[in-house]
Design a protein around this nucleic acid. Structure first.
Lengths: 238, 238
DNA sequence: CAGTGGTCTAGACCACCTG
DNA sequence: AGGTGGTCTAGACCACTGC
């Protein structure tokens, strides 16, 4: 069993309630090592992933404890998953209600990445998507993909999961992404899509995504409806 | 040399430009191990901290590379530091222009933590602070501290770094904190403090902070001026 | 194929908490 | 003092990249 498998097994076991439900205490590391037949390295990797997700916390000298959470938020931001709709696991669905595809040159783009200088003549796919959370407008996305890295996109692909297509069909090895979060007054075009009024708040997420090998392949700007968007994150305190 | 010392040394060496400035490539791991006299475990811990800060990235089969960044943001959110003012390193200062301290019972609090049930009669310190970034109003903070864990606060403490006081003077062992980020329309009281108008956007950060041993000791709500607040974060892409 | 980072094993010692 | 998690050592094998 590797770290990822162990992590999934631990989550299942926690949800199944097989550990002490009174105190929320997990067995000690030596016991878990025996129970799951892994080394301490693998166990601790799996556990630290659970810690990062806010599922458990570890206290030196005491043990590992399940966290009781009553979170009621839609977006989760963390190291390993980026920004995800937490509620998707609970059956709440995101649907793409409109998606538009075009090709533009970098010099014509509405915005450019902060950290990478592009050739003005470079061709980019431009994807505009409006997505709903259940029946409510949730996010208006404007995304550019560098054509030299993502050679093909079509309408069918962009209504689904673009990242899955990049990984599965194109075999791209995705690496990391920079995210910038802020809020601003909503402009007319976005306001209309999200059924807001111009000047009302909107939560903006700028994203610059890189392949594992280093090059930028995608940069985008996502406008979230402020009433349905709450980002969750866990941090170590220093 | 331990992982933290190595991390600091690596940052100094990167800033000093001692590595290949053309490609940004660091020496390979075996070479760094020799150079700094540490084991691979320690080296990789230090490097993964640099990765989490967006200072370098690692590409399997290729090497470790320095990232060129031109970020222009004020707030950094990451695992190990929580939310920090990035620009502080560059001489931009945060000053507390007003700070008010009172004691209330939990049942009288303006808001309560999502994840912890408090005794309505429990006493809390309530700290209201307005802080400026240079000459502009930056953040209005409303923070509650559980008196049974933080037995003493006074005016002098709350104008400075409360967390430093908790660590250094009270010897508390801080653990982790949940953070919720969203935006909303600004209410009158906050608007006035931030020199905004009611209804304009405001970036809100809710924070629930726990000791290493597990108990909640602080929960707060920070209202950031939307024009000066941009949060940076780095994520692995799956 | 050689060199890179990614994962894992096995074991030691340290720091912290509780009784 | 004994048990807990936190850090570190030393070494092996795997997966990916580029020549």
């Amino acid at each position: 069993m590797n770290a990822v498998e162990l992590e999934e097994k631990l989550i299942r076991d926690i949800e199944a309630g097989i550990f002490d439900s009174e105190t929320g205490k997990l067995p000690s590391e030596p016991e878990l090592i025996k129970k799951y037949g892994v080394t301490r390295y693998t166990l601790r990797n799996a556990l630290s992933s659970l810690v990062a997700q806010g599922i458990v916390y570890q206290a030196q000298g005491k043990g590992t404890f399940i966290r009781k959470r009553r979170h009621n938020h839609y977006l989760t931001l963390n190291d390993t998953t980026g920004l995800t709709v937490a509620a998707q696991h609970q059956g709440i669905e995101i649907t793409t209600v409109s998606a538009k595809l075009s090709i533009v040159k970098a010099k014509e783009a509405q915005f450019l990445p902060e950290d990478v200088e592009l050739d003005p003549e470079e061709e980019l796919y431009f994807v505009e998507r409006l997505r709903y959370l259940e029946a409510a407008p949730f996010v208006m996305e404007y995304a550019y993909y560098r054509k030299e890295i993502v050679p093909y996109l079509d309408q069918e692909i962009i209504v689904g999961s673009i990242y899955n297509y990049l990984k599965e069909s194109l075999g791209l090895n995705l690496g990391f992404s920079d995210k910038f979060i802020y809020c601003d007054e909503c402009e007319q075009e976005v306001a209309q899509a999200l059924q807001l009024k111009a000047g009302m708040p909107v939560l903006i997420l700028e994203d610059e995504a890189y392949l594992a090998k280093g090059p930028l392949f995608n940069f985008s700007k996502l406008y979230y409806h402020y009433k349905y968007s709450k980002i969750f994150m866990l941090a170590k305190v220093n």
